[in-house]
Simulated scan of single mutants.
Amino acid sequence: MKKRIQVMYTQLNETLKAQLYKELEEKTKDFRLPKEGDLKKALKNQPVAVADSVVLYSSSLRANKHRSRRYKGGTASIYLSNSLGGEQKGTLVHTVGINGGMTFYKSIPLNNQHYLEKDLNEKIPKTVTLFTDEGYNFLWDRPNHRSVNHSKKSNDARYNLSRERWCTKEGVSSNGAEARNNILKQSFRSYGFLSCKWGQLALDEISFIGNVRFVPELKNLLSLGDSRNVGFGDYHYSRPLEQNRPLYHVYTPLTVQERGRLRHHKLINQYKEQDIAKYNKSYRSAILHNDYYWKNFYQKDRMKNEIEYNRRAYQIYSNLELGKWNDTDSIANSLNLSKREILFIL
């Protein structure tokens, strides 16, 4: 019965997520954050999204037969040691929420760009203001994304860390996501332990219970407050039968081999072969050459350089003003980069 109720919450939560996406898209379609200065005035009537990840139910040393819990190249403690099969025991959760609004949780197998970016694109439009920590620097195509450095050092010799590691002078802070993760951990303590197989259903339950208060019509309907015709609607309507079963919403963890493939090929294009065939010859050749290199000649130093240039390209993209001419001299001065380097990236 518990899982049947969770399935109902999951289906209702999907409707809320779709409706919220449409509202955010309409409200922020022409919005652009200023390049510098205090952001509080610009965000006075704008929604602000926050995102972060958290681990629930880490695998213990005893469960690992006192082997190291560290999974190389991935999340630290939700997997058993590879010598024991590498099975996923804990639950890794990606939290996406709107400050003063709804929150949605997603159970993901790895804390990397592929899963984090995919979850963000499903829940919030790219024009929404997004505050995160510096683990999301790969989001180069979100012009209103700002991050806070949780490890920022203090300029004062008397202190080790700066107080700006929680909230910058411009007003950037991801404390909203940190607070939601704290509530999530407190809620899951009542389970003692929950298998990752059923983790997504439990996350959707907690998410929906928290989101109901932001939808007065749905709140009145569930509590039978102002609704007089409950049960007199189209009672023949129902979702497809398989979507009403708990097994339809089961979370399937990745195997050791699947995690290994995702670990090494971060810079391979995610195009389908039929899509590549539609592009012009030079573009198609560049894509295939790039993929061949990363599949066959993996080099750690080269990947570090690629990540660094991606970060600089993200900075340049964020400083470009849409619909206006942008000169490289002003961009070079504001970002402290050389003009030749900016032209090369462009």
Rank of each mutant, 00 (worst) to 15 (best):
L80E: 12
N305W: 01
Y271N: 15
K339H: 02
N121H: 12
L221T: 09
G74H: 14
N290C: 12
P109I: 04
I268T: 12
L43A: 01
F131Q: 05
E217H: 15
N296P: 01
K126S: 15
N269I: 04
I342G: 03
I331N: 05
Q243A: 05
N112Q: 14
N181S: 08
K41E: 12
L92Y: 06
L33Y: 06
G135K: 14
Y235A: 13
W198M: 03
P253R: 02
Y71P: 00
P109V: 07
S162M: 03
V55I: 13
K197F: 09
N280C: 10
K185G: 06
S173H: 06
Y293F: 12
Y159N: 12
K295A: 07
N244Q: 12
F208V: 02
F131D: 04
G135T: 10
N181K: 09
R189M: 06
R259C: 05
D141I: 08
A179C: 08
F138S: 11
R67F: 00
K3Y: 05
H289E: 15
E25G: 14
D141W: 09
S58M: 09
N155Y: 04
L221S: 14
T129W: 01
N333K: 15
Q88P: 08
S53C: 11
A332H: 07
L346R: 15
F104P: 00
W198K: 12
R284W: 02
K300R: 14
W166K: 15
A49Y: 00
N296L: 02
E25H: 12
Q11Y: 02
N64I: 03
L92T: 04
L247A: 15
G225W: 01
F138W: 01
R245S: 11
T91P: 00
P143K: 10
A157V: 03
R340V: 09
G323M: 06
Y293A: 01
K324I: 04
V128E: 08
V172T: 11
N229E: 12
S174V: 04
G74E: 12
Q11N: 10
E122C: 14
A313K: 11
Q257Y: 10
